[in-house]
Design a binder for these strands. Sequence first.
DNA 1: TTGATATGTAGGAGAAAACCTACCTATACT
DNA 2: AGTATAGGTAGGTTTTCTCCTACATATCAA
Lengths: 116, 116
Amino acid sequence: MPPRPSLVADGIEDRVFAALASPVRREVLRLLRDGGPQSVRQLADNFEMARPSFSEQLRVLREAGLVSERKDGRQRFYRLEPVPLADVQDWLSPYERFWRERMAELGKVLDRMEDA
Amino acid sequence: MPPRPSLVADGIEDRVFAALASPVRREVLRLLRDGGPQSVRQLADNFEMARPSFSEQLRVLREAGLVSERKDGRQRFYRLEPVPLADVQDWLSPYERFWRERMAELGKVLDRMEDA
DNA sequence: TTGATATGTAGGAGAAAACCTACCTATACT
DNA sequence: AGTATAGGTAGGTTTTCTCCTACATATCAA
């Protein structure tokens, strides 16, 4: 029997969410956001992970389009890329109306509890 | 040698992002958003997956707090829960300023290209 | 050129994810 | 009671993820 085709997340958005599902990778994004573009070394110093493992985390972020790299001498500077996160927000926005309604309901219930 | 402790995503936010990294699960959320609470059967009819596999997808969503269930007779109705998605937006908001700046830069570059 | 530094690739181990089929449990219907 | 329906759990397979050590490549410095 031939192997089943992979059924795992493969779309662009899938990779973005999958990349965000790791505290290490989210921390990298935060570091780039707050500190601007940084070399691999600078970034890696924030983690206890072995260097090659950290390179792989960067690869995941790169393949999700969340960061880009620029070579400069023997260093590579990584930079936060805005588009995928903006896409996440676009994905999220139709849910916003929904949760405002739910939050409002909760508020009403709490008000009634206060009255009683 | 004792097995290493699991280093896989385990925080609440981790589970949310991991849950979102699947087109099936995102589609379930959309169905619940647009169609309101629905039974497992109703939801499952939208997918070709075997029923038990679909149950597991629901479990992932449930453990991420993205949906809740309510038993009614022999059916279980699933409902979209607002908090985790609101958390995602909260996580996202500090990046918003950042990508607005980058988008603005891009705009300037394009303007200069037009001038030339 | 020789050596040090910065970073990535290769290959492997172990855990986890995502499917499946078979089976179990609870509720409803007759 | 007996059968059908709704849904979950158990256990197995394949693929993917995440870490590691060892090694390769590119660049800078002496």
